[in-house]
C-alpha cells in the first residue's frame, strides 16, 4: 500500500517480500478488505439483503466459498461468513451491508485489519501446509474454492484454496500471529526440507 499511514503485520520483517530458498511462493496479501458477517442463512430477508449488496448469494455448504467480481464470500460456520473485497472498498461495502440489514437480526463488522493473509503457491504448498496441520491437504478433497478452518502450528487459521493447478492458496490468520506464522511457513517451506509425497522415488534398494 502506498498509504504512509498503513503498516501491515509484517512491516517489521525484511523478508516480507521474499524469503530466499523456498520450495513454494510465499507472499503477503495486504490490499484485501474483510468483513465478518453473522446472520441466519435460513432467514430469507437476511439472505436476500446480503445477496443484493454482494451480487452473490451466501454459500451455505460447509467449507465452501462463492464469489462475484472482486467480492468473495468464505464460509466460516453455519451463521458466519468472511466477505473479502479490495481493501479500498471495504468501508463502503460494510456501510451498504449495515444499511441493507437494518432491522434484520445480523452483525456485520469491518475486520479488514484483524487478520493477515499469506499466499502460498506451487506444487509443494499442500505438503508445506501439512507440516503445520493435521488436516489432509493432499487427498484431493480440498479442491479449488474450498475453505478450511484449522489449527496451523499452534495457532488458529483458515485456508482458502484459490486454484488447484497451479496450486494457489490463501492462509488467513490473526494479525498478532503473523510474525510467528511467517517464520513457521518460511522454515518448513525451505527447499532443503522439501518432502515429495506418493510419487516416484530414487535411492530405494534392498
Amino acid at each position: 500500500m502506498s498509504d504512509p499511514v498503513f503498516r501491515s503485520a509484517l512491516a517489521h520483517r525484511n523478508d516480507r517480500n521474499s524469503v530466499p530458498g523456498l520450495s513454494i511462493g510465499l507472499t503477503e496479501i495486504s490490499d484485501r478488505g474483510m468483513i465478518d458477517l453473522r446472520g441466519a442463512a435460513s432467514d430469507k430477508k437476511f439472505a436476500g439483503a446480503v445477496k443484493d449488496v454482494l451480487g452473490v448469494a451466501l454459500c451455505t455448504k460447509p467449507r465452501s466459498s462463492a464469489s462475484a467480481g472482486d467480492i468473495t464470500v468464505l464460509w466460516l460456520s453455519i451463521d458466519q461468513w468472511l466477505i473479502t473485497c479490495p481493501r479500498s472498498a471495504a468501508s463502503d461495502l460494510h456501510g451498504r451491508l449495515v444499511k441493507a440489514l437494518d432491522g434484520i437480526h445480523s452483525l456485520a463488522v469491518d475486520v479488514s485489519d484483524m487478520r493477515a493473509i499469506f499466499r502460498l503457491e506451487g506444487d509443494n504448498a499442500r505438503v508445506v501446509l501439512n507440516k503445520g496441520t493435521s488436516v489432509d491437504f493432499t487427498d484431493g478433497t480440498l479442491g479449488a474454492g474450498s475453505v478450511r478452518r484449522l489449527r496451523y502450528a499452534e495457532i488458529a487459521a483458515a485456508v482458502h484454496v484459490i486454484s488447484d493447478a497451479p496450486c494457489v492458496m490463501d492462509m488467513y490468520l490473526f494479525r498478532s500471529y503473523a510474525d510467528y506464522a511467517w517464520s513457521y511457513l518460511s522454515k518448513t517451506a525451505a527447499k532443503a526440507s522439501e518432502v515429495k509425497l506418493f510419487g516416484v522415488q530414487v535411492g530405494i534398494g534392498v
Binding site: 502450528a153 499452534e154 510467528y180 517464520s183 522454515k187 518448513t188
Partner: peptide, 18 residues
C-alpha cells in the same frame, strides 16, 4: 520439530511491537 527458537511458542505482537 520446527517449534524451536522464535517458533518455540507463538508470540503475539501488537501493531506497536516493533
Amino acid at each position: 520439530g520446527a517449534h524451536v527458537r522464535d517458533r518455540f511458542l507463538p508470540v503475539r505482537r501488537t501493531a506497536i511491537h516493533d
